[in-house]
Simulated assay, not measured.
Amino acid sequence: MDTPKSKKLDIIIPAFRGHSQNFLMALDGISEDDAVKRVEGRTNHIVWMVGNFLDMRYAMGNILGLQEEFEYKDFFFQGKALDENLHYPSLQNLKADFHKISPLVYQKLLEVSDDELDKAFPMGMNIEFFPETVLNFIGMCIGREDYLCGQIGLMRRIFGYEGMKYDFDKDLKY
């Protein structure tokens, strides 16, 4: 495993890499048609979940100094609600974007210092037990990714796909 500059990220680095793996395995075999289906008109569709996952990756990258901008930001920024009137990007395009942003964010996670992680990052939450710092924002993004991977995994089962396989790709370094 790569060693981050900050020991504070010892748990974040494996989680980030694990989420990359889970994300791809949860999407394995999902068709473009199924990726835009909703359950009884009550759920988000998989494309929305994937876009929201990517929004988290871009948010982490931005707070760590990356200038990359999410091409589909207008669809997904800050968990923007699903809009059935929009024509969402394809699952294939979103997966390609995942492979573009993820290694860049991963590298930034390896390079960030304790001082940078401790910087204030106002989120407007105003919760006494939750310091609004760069580190805690990254932790929130990681938590959201975990949630979205679970949602995608559930949707794959609802649509009749096999359960997720845990065939980790040892060559995927992000």
Rank of each mutant, 00 (worst) to 15 (best):
residue 80 K to N: 11
residue 53 F to W: 08
residue 105 V to Q: 03
residue 140 M to K: 10
residue 66 L to V: 05
residue 65 G to I: 04
residue 76 F to L: 05
residue 60 M to T: 14
residue 132 E to V: 07
residue 22 N to G: 13
residue 9 L to D: 04
residue 77 F to C: 03
residue 85 N to V: 07
residue 154 L to S: 12
residue 122 P to N: 12
residue 98 F to M: 01
residue 66 L to H: 05
residue 138 I to A: 06
residue 92 Q to V: 12
residue 160 G to V: 07
residue 46 I to A: 03
residue 12 I to F: 11
residue 75 F to Y: 15
residue 86 L to S: 12
residue 106 Y to I: 02
residue 79 G to I: 06
residue 161 Y to A: 05
residue 169 D to G: 01
residue 25 M to Y: 02
residue 160 G to Y: 06
residue 51 G to R: 03
residue 48 W to S: 01
residue 76 F to D: 01
residue 75 F to L: 08
residue 23 F to E: 00
residue 21 Q to E: 14
residue 13 I to F: 05
residue 132 E to H: 06
residue 67 Q to P: 02
residue 69 E to M: 07
residue 170 K to M: 02
residue 150 G to F: 08
residue 138 I to Q: 05
residue 71 E to I: 07
residue 128 E to R: 11
residue 12 I to K: 00
residue 131 P to T: 09
residue 44 N to A: 11
residue 122 P to T: 12
residue 66 L to A: 09
residue 126 N to Q: 13
residue 119 K to T: 04
residue 59 A to L: 13
residue 167 D to C: 04
residue 22 N to Y: 10
residue 56 M to Y: 09
residue 136 N to V: 09
residue 118 D to T: 06
residue 39 V to E: 11
residue 46 I to S: 02
residue 11 I to E: 13
residue 165 K to C: 00
residue 150 G to V: 08
residue 85 N to H: 13
residue 63 I to R: 12
residue 127 I to T: 10
residue 34 D to L: 02
residue 25 M to W: 02
residue 156 R to L: 09
residue 116 E to R: 14
residue 24 L to D: 00
residue 40 E to M: 15
residue 40 E to C: 12
residue 58 Y to M: 09
residue 4 P to R: 08
residue 77 F to Q: 10
residue 111 E to W: 06
residue 87 H to G: 11
residue 53 F to K: 01
residue 113 S to C: 11
residue 83 D to V: 08
residue 172 L to W: 03
residue 94 L to V: 04
residue 92 Q to P: 00
residue 95 K to H: 03
residue 6 S to Q: 08
residue 156 R to Y: 07
residue 62 N to Y: 09
residue 137 F to A: 13
residue 162 E to Q: 14
residue 165 K to Y: 01
residue 167 D to G: 07
residue 99 H to L: 11
residue 89 P to W: 06
residue 160 G to I: 06
residue 77 F to D: 10
residue 106 Y to T: 01
residue 44 N to H: 13
residue 43 T to R: 05
residue 145 E to I: 02
residue 104 L to Q: 11
residue 73 K to V: 08
residue 167 D to K: 05
residue 102 S to N: 11
residue 157 R to F: 10
residue 3 T to W: 06
residue 138 I to K: 06
residue 173 K to N: 13
residue 149 C to T: 10
residue 125 M to I: 13
residue 110 L to F: 08
residue 15 A to N: 10
